[in-house]
Design a binder for these strands. Structure first.
Length: 528
RNA sequence: GGCCCCAUCGUCUAGUGGCCUAGGACAUAGGAUUUUCAGUCCUGUAACACGGGUUCAAAUCCCGUUGGGGUCACCA
């Protein structure tokens, strides 16, 4: 058996689609599982789109996830070039072969004529079939038209009496009746190839053994099959995997209308919200520029590649009836096409988040610090040169935060540990509830500040002793003071343990913040 | 509309004729732990689309119905 060669062939669109990434992943997995090669080919036959800028984000997504390619952009390979726009000679040659053998023909019908045919068929409620008028031309007439520079396209001549079929690796036997298939245009008048044609020529030249792609390509398959046969190329094995769906069960799409629908979805809405909270703080735009349809979103917002890879692997594939958390290494070892599910699979943000929770829990403190620091820096909460002291402070904060940090960017929501005391903002509702409404809040807080002022050992354990014995002496409930205390030093109703918080902030800051709170309470009972 | 694909809890899935009174995960509900939030630990709710066959036996095989989806370009 020959070496397995798979490919992913994105067209440069300026971003990497999450669904496309899943397809790429499955191709990569199958190649690696078999010790074969994974090839990146750039389908840029559509000349309108610009290349360099548009390709960057795609390669970046592969790099971020750690999916390497054996041949393709930047690395080259023995079948270079890997850009379709640079492979026109191959298409031209293949086309020539087809023309010579009579399996393709020049179609001189102007687009308007075809459009009219189509409209007529539509009106008659008939299935449109291209009429092949150019086939009636004699050889001399064809020569004449060419000499006159009449524009023409080249079409494959479909044998309308035939049937084509494949044994798809995930779908089994699928058959099509060629009598229903129009002669596909394979070359435009300007000599540029169409997708179905270029793909076949390239897949053959690049010796692709397995074409693994999303099921929306199933309907392209008969055309490509006929092309493989007409060119006398060996057919690759096909595997049409289910597409990645959104919450509505439809193919997840980059179209603006679809993205807006996602934004309104409860679960995806959360993801958009995260983008809008985080991205502006780190100078990366907002959900308008980076959204959950794009792989870049997950990186920007602080997901781990492991979590995305894990989530994508489980979309349409499973190892067994129990295993959920899987490393790329594990999946690579166990991945087989026969375990790919046939039905489309909806991407679930919650499940992605839960994979993220798991993977972040496997990280060491140092690793967490490394990945959180960039967010702090970009948001301006700390300066670019991070001192050892700052690192250790962040380490303590992350330890105190423990499971509260799910995404690396979550650290940004604990700005109270970084802002100057005078800039601390208070949650208005909680301020009322914990400080204004309870009559004894202010006096108790004032009393406890004095206790803190005389406390020497400012570590969590000692502070807990101090507070608890004071509470006992004063004959109050712990809840009477602790909520007010939390509000006054953090401005928020929730956060890490109270005593860890006090320790982290340190005596100085705690006293200043409590003092500031008391001042506000004395003045107008409102932080605003 | 034509062609093609698909159909197990809300979602991702296990299931390849008997191990299924259908298993796991996410989500969800309740409880426990707790100074808050997060977490953690229990417990629970929740699915074989429907109708016919085949068979001693069907979520599993066949046919049909219904429903959903993909695609119908000189886009990729």
């Amino acid at each position: 058996m020959s070496v397995v060669r798979t490919r992913f062939a994105p067209s440069p669109t300026g971003y990497m689609h999450i669904g496309g990434m899943r397809t790429a992943l499955f191709n990569w997995l199958w190649a690696r599982h078999n010790g074969g090669q994974f090839i990146l080919r750039i389908d840029d036959t559509d000349q309108e789109r610009n290349n360099d800028e548009a390709l960057g984000p795609i390669l970046a997504a592969f790099r971020w996830l750690g999916l390497d390619w054996d041949e393709g952009p930047e690395v080259g390979g023995e079948f270079a070039p890997y850009f379709q726009s640079q492979r026109t000679e191959f298409y031209r040659a293949a086309c020539e072969t087809l023309l010579k053998s009579g399996k393709a023909y020049r179609d001189f019908d102007p687009p308007e004529a075809i459009k009219a045919d189509r409209e007529q068929a539509d009106k008659d409620k008939q299935q449109y079939m291209n009429v092949r008028r150019s086939l009636d031309l004699s050889e001399a007439e064809v020569e004449q038209l060419i000499a006159e520079n009449q524009p023409y396209v080249i079409r494959l001549l479909v044998d309308r009496t035939a049937k084509v079929s494949i044994t798809d690796q995930v779908r089994g036997d699928v058959e099509w009746d060629c009598s229903l298939i129009n002669d596909p245009v394979i070359m435009r008048a300007d000599g540029s190839p169409l997708y179905n044609f270029a793909t076949v020529v390239d897949d053959a030249h690049l010796k692709i053994t397995h074409v693994i792609r999303a099921e929306e390509h199933l309907s392209n398959t008969p055309t490509q099959l006929m092309l493989f046969d007409a060119l006398e190329y060996e057919r690759p094995v096909f595997a049409h995997i289910p597409f990645v769906a959104g919450p509505d069960g439809k193919k997840i799409s980059k179209r603006e209308k679809y993205v807006e629908k996602l934004r309104k979805d409860a679960k995806f809405g959360k993801l958009f919200q995260i983008a809008d909270d985080v991205l502006p703080q780190i100078g990366m735009g907002s959900s308008e520029t980076i959204n959950p349809v794009m792989v870049a979103y997950y990186e920007a917002v602080g997901f781990m590649p492991e979590a995305i890879l894990n989530g994508l692997s489980r979309l349409g594939w499973s190892f067994d009836d129990k295993t959920e958390q899987m490393s790329l290494e594990f999946v690579t070892k166990e991945f087989t096409l026969d375990r790919v599910v046939k039905a489309s699979a909806a991407l679930d943000p919650d499940k992605l988040l839960s994979f993220q929770e798991y993977w972040i829990s496997t990280l060491s403190l140092e690793e967490k610090i490394d990945r959180c620091v960039p967010y702090l820096v970009k948001s301006g909460m700390i300066s670019e040169e991070v001192t050892d002291q700052e690192r250790s402070y962040i380490g303590k904060l992350l330890t105190a935060l423990s499971e509260r940090i799910k995404l690396f960017s979550d650290v940004l929501s604990y700005d109270e540990f970084f802002v100057p005391d005078e800039d601390l903002e208070y949650d208005e509702k909680a301020f009322q509830k914990r400080l204004v409404k309870p009559e004894n809040a202010a006096p108790l807080l004032a009393q406890f500040r004095d206790v803190l002022a005389t406390t020497e050992a400012f570590d969590a354990a000692s502070l807990e002793d101090v507070l608890k014995s004071w509470v006992e002496e004063a004959g109050i409930n712990i809840g009477d003071i602790i909520h007010a205390l939390r509000m006054s030093v953090t401005g928020k109703p929730a956060g890490p343990g109270m005593f860890e918080t006090l320790e982290l902030l340190g005596k100085e800051r705690c006293l200043v913040r409590i003092g500031r709170t008391l001042e506000i309470l004395n003045n107008n009972s409102s932080p605003a």
